[in-house]
């Protein structure tokens, strides 16, 4: 027997919903078809989004899950561009753990010296790294 494909599974699900909907009195087949199609689409969207969230959590999330720290909570580059250096430093000041600062830099692709260990050094390095990233973008677009 042929392995079921996504299309054949969708058809089977659609038929299931159509029959269930049509069992209600007064619902015509055409309307039942449309409602069944909408149900299958909605399920597909929910499943796709769940799978993407799961994949994202697997690829990006272990660090956050383990430590409770979210290295994506804000964008260092965007904060620097919108609010300036002091505001970024202030926000980084709310992160006490050097390991968390390293995680943020790593997650946001901000290059810092791997030898740095103190939180204040790491914060300054992140600001400089974000500035370099912006300068690099400006240079590439000229």
């Amino acid at each position: 027997m042929a392995k079921p494909t996504k299309a054949s599974e969708d058809q089977r699900l659609k038929a299931f919903f159509r029959d269930a909907i049509q069992s209600e009195p007064g619902i015509e087949r055409e309307l039942a078809e449309r409602m069944a199609e909408r149900c299958v689409q909605s399920i597909d969207n929910v499943l796709t989004e769940s799978a993407q969230r799961a994949a994202a959590a697997q690829s990006e999330g272990p660090v956050a899950a383990k430590s409770g720290f979210d290295p994506f909570a804000f964008s260092a580059v965007a904060l620097l561009a919108r609010k300036g250096r002091d505001e970024l430093l202030s926000r980084l000041g709310e992160i006490a753990e050097p390991e968390h600062l390293r995680q943020l830099a790593n997650a946001q692709h901000i290059a810092i010296d791997p030898g740095l260990t103190r939180a204040d050094e790491l914060r300054l390095a992140i600001v400089r790294g974000a500035e370099r990233r912006m300068a690099s973008r400006r240079a590439a677009a000229s």
Binding site: Q52, A56, E60, S75, V77, A78, A81, A107
Partner: peptide, 27 residues
């Protein structure tokens, strides 16, 4: 995709450009 790294890149892109509210997912 529902990926936090991509969210940052979209935000970074929007620093210099107008962005549609609509986003098309990988679907």
């Amino acid at each position: 995709r529902a990926n936090p790294r991509e969210r940052l890149l979209i935000e970074e892109t929007s620093l210099a450009h107008p962005m549609l509210a609509t986003e098309l997912p990988q679907r």
